[in-house]
Design a binder for these strands. Structure first.
Lengths: 139, 139
DNA sequence: AATCCAGATGCAAAAGCTTCTCATTTCTAT
DNA sequence: ATAGAAATGAGAAGCTTTTGCATCTGGATT
């Protein structure tokens, strides 16, 4: 994923957009909030406004470079979209997020939609639980 | 569901709470926002503040009388909790919401959580699509 | 039935996330 | 290099939801 992708999306290749894309690529935690991105920019000495971060993330989402999730709570988290669909499993204690794809579930969803008379356009499945670490007391 | 349930929840049986519970019971659309409830109250000539609606809905949620969902978009929707778990399928065009339960999916979720090392505590599956009505042009 | 007080309410203000406005700056095609 | 369209920064505004606080009320006790 590079500045080429920005251009392909019909967006000018500007410093804020390049920086934000870099941050998304390098994020150790794939799922970041706008605020997270903003903080990294500040720490890196960049003078990029929070409004720009929101604008760019939304544009990236529209362009399909990024996916936006609304897990529990109010604010959005963003992750690079590498083209492979997946669902999420979240730890309610530490906030850890894992990804998974389950063929059986995918297929059932299609069938459920048909049965309900819907043309499925999208779906999201969030499983909440307590991860192994937290269960073992490694808070 | 009656005022008894309010008392059982450890809450005083007040006029706002009774009215709000009634509205939830009678809502033709089972899934309502706080604003929806507030409007019905106003139309009914009740002088109940929006803040109270939020407070009461949150208390009802805590008491298990009501379930809160955060579908796409920012605001919460509430529905009476009649004890039977279900998932949701939503029309992205008209906002219609249907409910379903699928045994296969439920079971797979449990398995997926285990495989990922999680103790599943909860989950939610939202299927988005276009409902029959909208597909037939009945916008 | 009158009294009392913790709990509940209304209102307005505040909070938190996100978007918008607009003057200024920066790409990029020429 | 230049011009024009697009993008940005800063702060104001928007929306949903929560909070602070003075007032009110349900319901337990006289």
């Amino acid at each position: 994923m590079e500045s080429q992708d920005i251009k392909k999306a019909g967006l000018k290749v500007t410093l804020p957009r390049v920086k934000i894309l870099e941050i998304l690529e390098r994020a150790e935690n794939r799922h970041v909030t706008a605020e997270d991105v903003y903080k990294v920019l500040l720490d890196g000495g960049e003078e990029i406004g929070l409004a720009t971060v929101y604008r760019v993330l939304t544009q990236f989402e529209t362009a399909g470079l990024v996916t936006r999730h609304r897990f529990e709570g109010v604010h959005s988290v963003f992750e690079l979209d590498e083209g492979r669909h997946h669902d999420h499993i979240l730890c309610v204690r530490c906030g850890r997020v894992d990804e998974f794809v389950d063929k059986a579930v995918e297929e059932r969803q299609q069938a459920i939609a048909e049965q309900a008379g819907y043309d499925m356009t999208d779906h999201c499945l969030y499983i909440y639980g307590i991860c192994r670490n937290c269960r073992n007391g490694h808070a």
